[in-house]
Amino acid sequence: MKQYEVLKWASLFLEKHHREATVGEILLQHYLNVSRSMFFANMQETIPAVLVDKFKKWIILHAETGVPIQHIIGVESFYGREFLVNKHVLIPRPETEELIEHILQTTDEKVQTIVDVGTGSGIIAITLALELPNAEMYATDISAQALETARQNAEKLNANVTFLEGDFLQPIRLQGIEPDMIVSNPPYIALSDEPALSDTVKNYDPHLALFAEENGLAAYKEIIHSIPTGVKNVVFEIGYEQGQAVQTLIKNKYPAADVTVIKDINGHDRIVSAQI
């Protein structure tokens, strides 16, 4: 089969199963191991039958079960870099790049200590370590498997991050680390919202990184309650209906804090940023 024929088959099959047709492009480009421009330039090229069979097998599996394409290829791009992903970590979302942009735009280059709470695959901590080379970067997670993935990503991308296992800020306090900034994309989906999630999310993303008690606010409450003395900035990624609630949680502890709710590119509340 020619490349365009394989891609047409995948698109029709995916659409029939109510999946994103672009999944076919992503997976086929991965198997062909070519640049995006070369991929589209080679549409008339013939693909070996063994590769077509392998490609079709994974497309069928994704269509019928919802297994994320990122789990099939083992990687996902974030802020221009490729990160390893698996069943132990959340797949990076484009909205989190906006969290990175906000921090880079509002943080100067002086030496400071930053802690990423609930790091998962390490995308936030590693990206900040690479974009802010003067920062001393720490990252925590309660999942040993997630931390192993984050360490592999840091090594792969040559990022200097210290990873600590433990619940939220607990390992930071135990080590006596005095951060200037806390950043976190914690679990924030209410358990009652699980039925509305796609099978790709609820069946394959780790529940520990998705769901939180107290209508999705429990992790924010725990982190805010545990913020060490001396922290100057706190930056959270939030669910689109949580801006006011998280802002109030911060103001309750720090009445004088300057707290801002920032919308993402789609116009939804996405970031809460506080100067304490």
Rank of each mutant, 00 (worst) to 15 (best):
V34N: 01
I124M: 08
Y254F: 15
V85I: 10
I114S: 06
Y240G: 02
L32V: 03
R93D: 09
H102D: 13
I262R: 01
I177Q: 04
T65E: 11
I271Q: 02
L12V: 09
Q44T: 12
H225I: 04
L128N: 07
D141W: 03
L28S: 08
S143Y: 02
I123Q: 04
I172M: 10
A10N: 10
A209D: 03
A196E: 14
G80R: 13
I69H: 05
P68G: 10
I69L: 15
N134C: 12
F236P: 04
K54L: 14
P195W: 10
Y220L: 08
D199S: 08
K2Y: 08
T149H: 00
E194P: 02
I262E: 00
V272N: 00
A159D: 06
A135Q: 07
Y79C: 11
I73C: 13
G243I: 02
A135P: 09
I59V: 15
E101Y: 07
Q247P: 00
I72M: 15
K221Y: 01
E20C: 08
I114A: 08
P187H: 01
R19G: 09
V246G: 03
K263E: 13
P228H: 05
I250N: 00
E214D: 15
H102R: 10
E109H: 15
L84P: 02
T162V: 15
M181W: 05
N134G: 13
W9H: 06
I60Y: 05
A21D: 11
S77C: 11
L84E: 12
V89E: 02
V85H: 06
E97K: 02
Y254K: 03
E155T: 09
V235Q: 01
R93M: 10
G230W: 06
E136H: 14
V34Q: 04
N42G: 14
Y4E: 14
Q105V: 00
Q242D: 07
V115L: 12
D264I: 06
I72Q: 11
S35Q: 03
V67M: 15
